[in-house]
């Protein structure tokens, strides 16, 4: 069973007056089949955790370890992490001019699976996944994220999640900017992948809204660059009614 283990992770970014520490000792274990919600106020470091796990060059790891089934994730390049089974659904997916969605998906699937998918089954696979996400087939011929609406970008991220079948899926604020219908469809996509039992999900969100559709097994409150409280789904209800204020003093958010 695939397990992602994060131990005492410290991460800095370059700021105007030298490096600034954002993550200050994160400990978290995510196993295949589990869903962990990470909730916290803006600026608490949630997205930094997501991008650090995926290997974004902006973030410098200054301490701690991340392993996937014992393999050192931090020693891997960005593409190696993806091929090892780490997937990041981005909050702000990037436009890639000149590359069509269909070409992108196929190149990506070929890289992740280690061989080009057979054309006939692939076409069917993509078409089916797009239909389930309520995406227009014409979408496949558009350039990656170019001119996509907020909802289209998020559907496209979840489409990739469905096709690439990672071991660990990190969903960074996938709910942001979605209307109710889009949120429901995107959540259903995530749930289809979760139901396979083969993915460990790290659901990063500011709001409890998405948790109505995606039921977490664990909820962690993130503040001041670390996890300050962990619990079950009931912790989300508490956050819904009380907000993050209690944690912001307790967690010692730096101004």
């Amino acid at each position: 069973m695939a397990t992602l283990e994060i131990h005492d992770l410290h991460v800095s970014v370059e700021a105007e007056n030298g490096p600034r520490e954002i993550l200050k000792g994160v400990d978290l274990t995510v196993k295949q089949g589990e869903t962990h919600a990470i909730m916290g106020p803006n600026g608490s470091g949630k997205s930094t955790l997501a991008y650090s796990l995926a290997g974004h060059p902006k973030y410098t790891i200054t301490g701690g370890t991340v392993t996937l089934d014992g393999e050192d994730v931090l020693a891997m390049s960005v593409d190696e992490r993806a091929r090892a089974g780490v997937f990041l659904a981005m909050q702000y997916p990037v436009e890639v001019p000149g590359v069509s969605v269909s070409n992108f998906l196929r190149t990506s699937a070929t890289a992740i699976r280690g061989e080009a998918p057979k054309l006939r089954t692939w076409v069917k696979e993509v078409k089916g996944a797009m239909e389930r996400l309520n995406m227009d087939p014409a979408f496949a011929e558009r350039n990656v994220n170019e001119g996509f609406s907020g909802g289209e970008k998020k559907r496209h991220e979840i489409l990739q999640l469905e096709l690439l079948k990672p071991k660990i899926a990190i969903l960074d604020e996938t709910d942001s900017g979605l209307d109710v219908d889009a949120l429901r469809q995107v959540s259903e996509g995530v749930n289809r992948v979760r139901e396979t039992g083969e993915v460990g999900t790290l659901l990063i969100t500011h709001y409890t809204r998405i948790l109505r559709y995606i039921k977490p097994d664990f909820v962690h409150v993130f503040s001041g660059g670390r996890i300050v409280e962990s619990g079950g789904a009931e912790l989300a209800d508490k956050l819904e009614s009380e907000g993050y204020e209690a944690y912001q003093t307790k967690g010692g958010v730096t101004a």
């Binding site: 960005v78 990041l88 000149g98 590359v99």
Partner: peptide
């Protein structure tokens, strides 16, 4: 863009080629 493509398993040099070829 490079990060986005690499985060989907595509090696850096192939990512650049993909973009230029498509363009």
């Amino acid at each position: 863009q490079l990060f986005y493509l690499m985060a989907r398993g595509i090696p850096a040099d192939e990512a650049r080629r993909l973009v230029v070829r498509g363009f």
